[in-house]
Structures are given as structure tokens and as C-alpha cells.
């Protein structure tokens, strides 16, 4: 437990970066985790194939909020093709907490990545667990 609630995670959960919405997003997608009722929406402003700005909104546990906060930091300024290739393992490395043996909390961490990818690919939903 103390592994997953490291100070960095708690900080991001308390004071999430890039929290909010964009007025005219190029892409906006919301993902819902029916298991725990968490929601994460990601708004992207894409200019010349690059993610020029990003915001996320929604409600969820510390893991899902911190994950969204760190992911949005990471992809700001990233080109769209690189962001599309951003994998589950990349995200887990980024947030730096051991969740591989905790499938329930893994879903919390991956919620923002699902929203990002479904938004970028323009599809209703993607399965990032199987990557």
C-alpha cells in the first residue's frame, strides 16, 4: 500500500496538473470505469500534428487522478503519432508504482490512457490492458 501511495502520487492527486477543460478542443473523449464509477475526460488541442495543449477533468481515486495528471504533463508538446504509440508499460514507468499484480487498481491507472487513445484514434473505446 505504501508503495502505491508514494508522496509523488499523493501530490498529483491533491494538486493535479492540467486539470480542467479546453474551450475548443480538437479532440475530447471521456472514459468511464463501471467498476468504481470513475470518470476521466481528456481534451486535446492539436496543431500541426502536435498536442499543443491538454486538460483533463473527472472524478476518481488518487491513482486515476495522479495518473491523468502525470500523463497530461508527459504528452503536452508530444506529436500525435508518438502519443498514439504511448503504451501501458510507458504509463506504468511514468507513474512509477507497482500495479502489475493489482488488476483492479491497474484499471484506475489506465483510465486516462484509455481516454487519450480512444480520443486520438477517434473510436468509442480501446483496450489498453491487452497491449
Amino acid at each position: 500500500m505504501d508503495d502505491i501511495y508514494r508522496e509523488q502520487i499523493l501530490e498529483h492527486a491533491r494538486y493535479p496538473h492540467n486539470f480542467g477543460t479546453l474551450e475548443q478542443p480538437t479532440v475530447s473523449h471521456e472514459e468511464y470505469n463501471p467498476l468504481c464509477g470513475d470518470r476521466v475526460r481528456i481534451d486535446l488541442l492539436i496543431e500541426d500534428g502536435v498536442i499543443a495543449d491538454v486538460r483533463f477533468s473527472g472524478k476518481g481515486c488518487a491513482i486515476s487522478q495522479a495518473s491523468a495528471s502525470m500523463l497530461t504533463d508527459e504528452i503536452k508538446g508530444m506529436d500525435v503519432e508518438t502519443a498514439k504509440a504511448f503504451s501501458k508499460d510507458d504509463l506504468l514507468t511514468l507513474i512509477g508504482i507497482p500495479l502489475s499484480k493489482n488488476p483492479t487498481r491497474l484499471k484506475c491507472a489506465l483510465l486516462s490512457l484509455k481516454a487519450l487513445k480512444a480520443g486520438l484514434y477517434g473510436v468509442a473505446s480501446v483496450d489498453v490492458d491487452d497491449e
Binding site: 468504481c36 476518481g60 481515486c61
Partner: peptide, 12 residues
């Protein structure tokens, strides 16, 4: 505190 976080702290 989100309910999932409550349960995780309790588990610890």
C-alpha cells in the same frame, strides 16, 4: 478520500 483509496488504506 475516494472509496477505492479508503479500501486500499484499510487493506494495508
Amino acid at each position: 478520500v475516494h472509496p477505492h483509496d479508503v479500501a486500499a488504506v484499510l487493506d494495508s
